[in-house]
Design a protein around this nucleic acid. Structure first.
Ligand SMILES: Nc1ncnc2c1ncn2[C@@H]1O[C@H](COP(=O)(O)OP(=O)(O)OP(=O)(O)O)[C@@H](O)[C@H]1O
Length: 782
DNA sequence: CCGGTCAAAATTTTT
DNA sequence: TTTTGACCGG
């Protein structure tokens, strides 16, 4: 192949990767396991296109995080230089936000529309629920927000929602008969506020492209190639964007791994991968099989785990790397001791292998788990960095400042107005605001407008309060003046922020938190300064609008790296997607936590949890360490736990159990097992002696505790005899049952316990089947 | 309208 | 344990 004269890169790719990169005859999907170089292929694909003469500014590359986009751009810049800056590369949200601003008026927004973050949205929803006098115990704001978000991600408008009998029926059944109404009001309020939420960014771009053929044609003409990373996590709205832009020309290249689909809660839909061929005619599918990241042990363990999922695209993955060390499994007595173990092992490994702190990551299922880790890391003196959880811009004081800024740019932004009209305190209360909102509603004007013409209305608000209201309106006008008339952007912002009165208000709070709030404001200012400098370097005029756009989509992952300090990375598994570390610790492998208690009900959710574990394991290059605690402190209460079912799914031969101290076992013996739930009395008795050995780390197997049996189970395989029973729950041997698919039948045997309890049923139509009771939903007939 | 006190709830992942 | 909200007296 002599496409590239002074080849710097084909050597960096294997044959399969190169084939994908160099294929240029239409749509392509690269579907491959973890660590097989999908991201690398995407990078080289872009380089390849540029070498073929494509203009970087006409290549659109979409990622899911800002960080991924930034890193990809940097890698490309290293090779081709500053031209990489012209790539249209970023998250779906950020790329389409800028496009939406250009065409806002076509959609009924002004170009300076606000972008609501999740807490803005939630506040609006709360207010609407209250306004409609609905019970927020029934209409839980979080759940409502989730439902609205899901609707938007599936491109279901409020009108379509309302017209869909099936949705209404399901909602009504769940006692949420007025959900559609909340959705409709919410949408209307946002529109009136000249604001879009995160999901609107994807929704509205679809509307724009669908309803305005000229705009569609324009953008189709602007983009010569569309590339998408992590395609398995695209939702329907994102799929439709790709389709509208590229279905005709077919210049699309996507990479993904169905086994790493972990964002279904955000609407991610594997169908997008499955129907890629149908959507994009003539699509070619490439598979990559060699894992370059991890040891053979890690690749095999991950492979064995994911085998347990029924729904997956079969893939081979192999590693030619070293066999590597066994996966360490550690049982700790408590969350605290688990964290101590992590610290100790990091210390050991650092000494033994010379690894640096930044080559370690500690991954967990939920953000709260970072607390315990943080405390112990502090105590131990190991440097670390926590990603995720609350973003800098989620802090109250920052959101307050941002609200003033938003009001300056977009006076219709009702959420911003309600947030700060009485902060700092200026004596404008609930009652006044209720009257004003009523009035605004009646005349169909934004609140800010009403504030500016109070004298026109009969409001029943005292003179004194009226003047406070006008004062606020005047303040916003004044702030706008400051920001517009000050030549230096940063200086203007300084003046503006100080004029809001927030810094002074914070001064009066001398508590520790108060101090940290003041610090945050200072940090924000330095961020503004940096933004201003960057903009100018790139030859752009810094503006409040642009600044707000920039920060609207920032997350905690995007905090700038202080290269001076390196440390262990602490993050959720979700946040770790796409990353890699020499040494990975995965902690909190307990039932009800991982898998999450909210996911154990449905097999579909459980499979997603398993994929999450798969993602976690495959982040590791050299060693992988798993931890769980026998008891964990949660919501102010210490709870006994059971090891995660997923541990049983890893091949024992690849695991190295690591014994907890004797003290721990004694402590555990004293308080631990007695309260365990989920096992029958006999089972408990037969398990008892094992608690004194180091072999008790795994959950009891269905056979009654022969540990070596555990993990060897593959779906459908029953190598060893099962404990059998006469009854389990309301099922009994000899009883007749109904199955949703197989029809009616008679139970011939019951065996196994807990999650592994199975029924053998002789069905009238389809013969004898062995079913896992927890999934089979057998309905007793007598 | 404000700020304090007290009781109840908390239940996952993110752009 | 920490956060949120409802309630009440000034
Ligand atoms: N042909 C290759 N030769 C050497 N190293 C490679 C090759 N391809 C990929 N790698 C390395 O393998 C590792 C994984 O690659 P990459 O992150 O692109 O995989 P991925 O498929 O995107 O992984 P995941 O889906 O798990 O995020 C990286 O360190 C990368 O540099």
């Amino acid at each position: 192949m002599h496409l590239f004269p002074n080849e710097d890169y084909p050597n960096e790719l294997n044959a399969a990767q190169r084939a994908a990169v160099e294929y240029n005859d239409g749509p392509a999907l690269v579907i491959a396991g973890a660590g097989s170089g999908k991201t690398r292929v995407l990078v080289y694909k872009i380089l390849h296109l540029i070498r073929l003469g494509y203009d970087p500014s006409r290549l659109m590359a979409l990622t899911f995080t800002n960080k991924a986009a930034r890193e990809m751009r940097q890698r490309i810049e290293l090779i081709i230089g500053p031209a990489a800056r012209r790539l249209r590369m970023g998250t779906f949200h950020s790329i389409f936000l800028s496009i939406l601003r250009q065409h806002a008026s076509l959609l009924g927004y002004s170009p300076s529309f606000s972008v609501y973050n999740s807490s803005d949205s939630k506040n609006r929803i709360k207010a609407i629920i209250k306004q409609m006098s609905l019970d927020d115990k029934v209409y839980k704001p979080n759940a409502v927000a989730g439902a609205i978000s899901r609707a938007k991600n599936r491109l279901i408008s409020p009108e379509a929602y309302r017209a869909n009998v099936e949705y209404l029926r399901l909602d009504a059944k769940a006692g949420l008969g007025r959900l559609w109404e909340i959705y409709a009001r919410y949408t209307q309020e946002l529109k009136q506020s000249n604001a879009m939420d995160f999901d609107d960014l994807l929704f509205e771009i679809n509307i724009l492209l669908r309803n305005h053929p000229d705009v569609l044609a324009y953008w189709q003409g602007q983009i010569d190639y569309l590339l998408i990373d992590e395609y398995q996590d695209t939702n329907f709205a994102q799929y439709m964007i790709a389709r509208q832009l590229m279905q005709e020309r077919g210049n699309i290249f996507v990479v993904g791994d169905d086994a790493q689909s972990i964002y279904s809660f955000r609407g991610a839909n594997l169908d997008n991968i499955l129907r890629f061929r149908e959507t994009f005619a003539g699509a070619k599918i490439f598979k990559l099989e060699q894992n370059y990241r991890s040891s053979q042990t890690i690749v095999q363990a991950a492979g064995a785990l994911i085998q347990h999922n029924k729904h997956q695209i079969p893939k081979e993955v192999f590693s030619l790397g070293e066999v590597g060390e066994a996966i360490e499994l550690h049982e700790a007595f408590s969350g605290d001791m688990e964290a101590s173990w992590v610290c100790k092992r990091i210390d050991d490994l650092r000494r033994q292998t010379g690894a640096t702190y930044d080559q370690f990551a500690v991954l967990y299922r939920t953000n709260v788990q970072s607390r315990t880790l943080e405390q112990v890391f502090r105590r131990t003196g190991i440097p670390f960095r926590i990603y995720g959880g609350r973003s800098f811009f989620d802090h109250k004081e920052i959101m307050d400042v941002v609200a003033y800024m938003r009001l300056v740019v977009n006076p219709n932004d009702e959420e911003a107005l309600l947030r700060v009209i009485n902060y700092p305190r200026r004596g404008i209360g609930e009652t006044t605001m209720a009257k004003l909102r009523q009035q605004a509603f009646e005349v169909g004007k934004p609140l800010m407008e009403v504030l500016q013409e109070l004298e026109l209305y009969e409001l029943g608000i005292s003179r004194a309060t009226q003047s406070k209201l006008s004062g606020f309106a005047a303040l916003i006008t004044e702030l706008r003046g400051l920001s517009e008339s000050t030549a230096d952007f940063y200086e203007g912002m300084q003046l503006m922020i100080s004029r809001t009165g927030i810094p002074v208000d914070l001064m009066s709070d001398t508590s520790l938190e108060g101090k940290s709030r003041q610090e945050n404001i200072k940090e924000m200012l330095s961020g503004i300064e940096e933004y201003s400098r960057n903009a100018q370097e790139q030859g752009q005029e810094p503006s409040l609008e642009a600044y707000l756009s920039e920060i609207a989509l920032l997350t905690d992952q995007d905090k700038k790296e202080h290269h001076t300090e390196t440390g262990v990375t602490l993050m959720t598994i979700h946040a770790a997607k796409g990353l890699e570390f020499k040494h990975v610790f995965i902690v909190g492998l307990e039932e009800m936590l991982f898998p999450s208690i909210l996911s154990v009900e449905s097999e579909k959710d459980l499979e997603e949890e398993r994929r999450l574990f798969y993602v976690a394991i495959t982040r590791a290059e050299k060693t992988c360490h798993l931890g769980y605690a026998r008891q964990r402190f949660r919501n102010g209460r210490t709870e006994n736990t059971q090891p995660s079912r997923f541990l049983r799914e890893l091949p024992p031969a690849l695991l190295k159990r690591n014994s907890a101290s004797i003290d721990t076992m004694v402590e555990f013996e004293r308080s631990g097992w007695r309260q365990q739930r989920g096992y029958g009395r006999d089972q408990m008795a037969s398990e008892l002696p094992q608690h004194f050995t180091s072999q008790s780390f795994l959950p009891p197997s269905p056979t009654g505790g022969k540990r070596r049996h555990i993990g060897r189970r593959v779906a459908g395989e029953d190598a060893e005899p099962e404990v059998s029973h006469e009854r389990i729950g309301d099922l009994r041997v000899g009883g007749r049952v109904r199955h949703r698919i197989f029809g009616d039948g008679q139970i011939t045997a019951l065996e196994g316990l807990g999650d592994n309890a199975k029924a053998i049923v002789a069905f009238d139509k389809v013969g004898s089947k062995k079913l896992l009771i927890q999934f089979a939903r057998l309905e007793p007939l007598d």
